[in-house]
Simulated assay, not measured.
Amino acid sequence: MTVQITGIETFRDGGSIEFYVESHSVRKHVWLDTPFKGEPRSLLVDNIKAAPHSTGVDELLRDLDAWHANLPSEQRHAIDEVLQRNGPFFNPTEAESRAIELSRVVFVQRYLRGPFLQPARPAPRITDELRAEAKRHANGWVYVIDPALSVGERVPPAAIVGAWRVDADGDIVADGFQANGRYRGSL
């Protein structure tokens, strides 16, 4: 099966990604929306919001997997390097530019396999310790760290469960929890 990806775009709205997938003579428009305030990103296929584990998402993942598997290994390696790099590319070579472009499709593929298909976690319980911390951070945020992390240990982004919004009086806002989509801890 030959799968073609065309029209890859990334938008400056915070990261929306758009491209077209053609497989079996059917062309699909794919749009992964910019995340909004910790909410999951929306996936649109042919301008219809796709639900996790739906037939449309399963078909899209099959197509993306087939496309990715058919890339030359050196191109897959270059894409992986782009995805692992932090920071901008200055004066990229033609090969780097192509890897950057294709990395957007691989990002969508990985997002669909990871956070998109994961069930939403409930907000963590508000403890007395969090309430006391909130009093010191009026009009700010109180972060919830994975309890498996040792006290005093450096906190990597994947160990931050999320954050509770704190109002002007130093009280936690009941519906103000924003989950960290990069959290990979024990909760």
Rank of each mutant, 00 (worst) to 15 (best):
E94I: 11
I79R: 03
R41L: 06
I17R: 04
L83Q: 10
P92R: 12
N91H: 13
D80Q: 14
K49I: 14
V57W: 03
E18D: 10
H53L: 08
V57E: 10
R62P: 02
S54I: 03
K49G: 06
L64E: 02
V57R: 08
S54V: 01
D65C: 07
V30W: 07
V82R: 02
F36H: 14
D63Q: 11
F89P: 01
N47G: 12
V45I: 15
Q84D: 09
V45E: 07
A51T: 13
P88S: 12
K37P: 00
N86V: 05
I17C: 01
E39P: 00
F89A: 09
N91V: 07
L43A: 06
K37C: 07
N47V: 11
L71D: 04
K49Y: 05
S42N: 12
I17M: 07
H24R: 14
L64A: 04
L71A: 04
W67Y: 05
P88D: 14
H53G: 01
A50W: 00
F89T: 04
H24Q: 15
R41W: 03
R62N: 10
R85K: 15
V26S: 09
H24T: 09
N91M: 13
I48R: 14
T93H: 11
I79W: 00
T34A: 08
R27A: 00
T34G: 02
E18N: 12
L44W: 07
T34I: 10
E18Q: 14
A50T: 02
P52V: 00
D80Y: 08
E81Y: 03
S23C: 11
L83W: 04
S23E: 09
W67N: 04
L61K: 03
V30I: 15
P52M: 08
R85W: 01
I17K: 06
L71M: 07
S25Q: 14
K28V: 08
P35S: 09
L64Y: 03
P72S: 11
D33E: 14
Q75E: 13
T55C: 08
A51K: 15
V82E: 02
W67F: 05
T93K: 05
D63W: 03
F90C: 11
A78C: 08
G56A: 13
S54C: 10
G87C: 05
D46M: 06
R27M: 09
P40E: 07
E18K: 13
V57I: 12
R41N: 06
S23H: 08
I48L: 14
E18R: 13
E74K: 12
I48W: 07
P52L: 08
D33F: 05
